[in-house]
């Protein structure tokens, strides 16, 4: 593999490495208090020990399950409600104000309520991830259909197409473009819902571990967990980008 010295990727990687080297050096020189800013080597050791003794797996499973189920359910709910509201004025009349309010508030404030209703297990985390994703996708689908290119609608109508053809040939593909454009944000939201839900009340998950690390003032564990979550979200970002290129190949060909 060729490394281009003038590429942005190289410059970004070099900047990251430089930051880590400086951070490590300052810690070794005693210029940084390891209680607040433990050196990268110590964070790496914590990370290795988390995986080495297998302690992390049940927590990863819990967070991933909540985030992925919440993401998929949120996508499904958002798409169905978005289509319903865009195609049936009565549904829009009822749903739009609720969605606007849900969109305006920081939806993580619903976490305690979900814990009261659904308990501290998986369901409350899924519910929070779901609501975060569903509201985002609802507006993507709703606006996607409302702002669909009317020339395409008229073209299909004059070719003899009806409502079903319009949905299949115009609305679904145009909404797919909008949804894919929001998929990365949705992935982030799903993890936010899962982790914040675990942070509020749980017995497993990365959020639970974070809460534990915070209560014991364990900065190394906190940073290790943050890095871990970032790494997994980046992997999901890459996967959603591949999915977007596959589904929207007409845009990238």
């Amino acid at each position: 593999m060729k490394i281009r010295l003038n590429s942005p990727t190289f410059r970004r990687s070099a900047a990251l490495v430089l930051l880590l080297v400086l951070w490590e050096s300052f810690s070794q020189l005693g210029w940084l208090d390891p209680f607040y800013a433990p050196p990268p080597s110590r964070v790496a050791k914590v990370m290795v020990s988390l995986f080495g003794d297998g302690e992390i797996w049940p927590h990863l499973e819990a967070t991933f399950s909540a985030a992925i189920i919440g993401l998929l359910a949120g996508l499904a709910v958002g798409i169905i409600l978005g289509f319903g509201a865009a195609l049936m004025p009565i549904v829009a009349e009822l749903l739009e104000p609720v969605m606007i309010v849900l969109n305006a508030i920081p939806r993580v404030i619903l976490a305690p309520l979900f814990v009261i209703w659904l308990g501290i297990d998986l369901a409350s985390k899924v519910a929070l991830a779901l609501i975060l994703v569903a509201v985002l996708i609802f507006f993507a689908v709703y606006s996607g259909i409302k702002e669909v290119d009317q020339r395409l609608v008229e073209r299909v109508l004059t070719l003899g197409g009806g409502r079903r053809v319009l949905i299949r040939e115009v609305y679904v593909p145009s909404v797919t473009a909008w949804v894919m454009g929001n998929l990365k944000v949705a992935v982030g939201f799903a993890f936010t819902g899962a982790v914040v839900g675990e942070f509020v009340a749980s017995s497993r998950g990365l959020g639970y571990l974070l809460q534990f690390a915070q209560s014991t003032y364990n900065a190394a564990l906190t940073i290790a967990l943050i890095v871990l979550i970032m790494a997994f979200v980046l992997v999901l970002f890459a996967l959603s980008e591949r999915l977007e290129r596959r589904l929207l190949r007409w845009r990238y060909t």
Partner: peptide, 26 residues
Amino acid sequence: VGFLFQDDALLPWRTARQNVALGLRI
């Protein structure tokens, strides 16, 4: 009745062949 618009208004997510076939499929 066929209608040829001012804009070509082809479906961007369909190939040229699929666009031409659209009316026939309908």
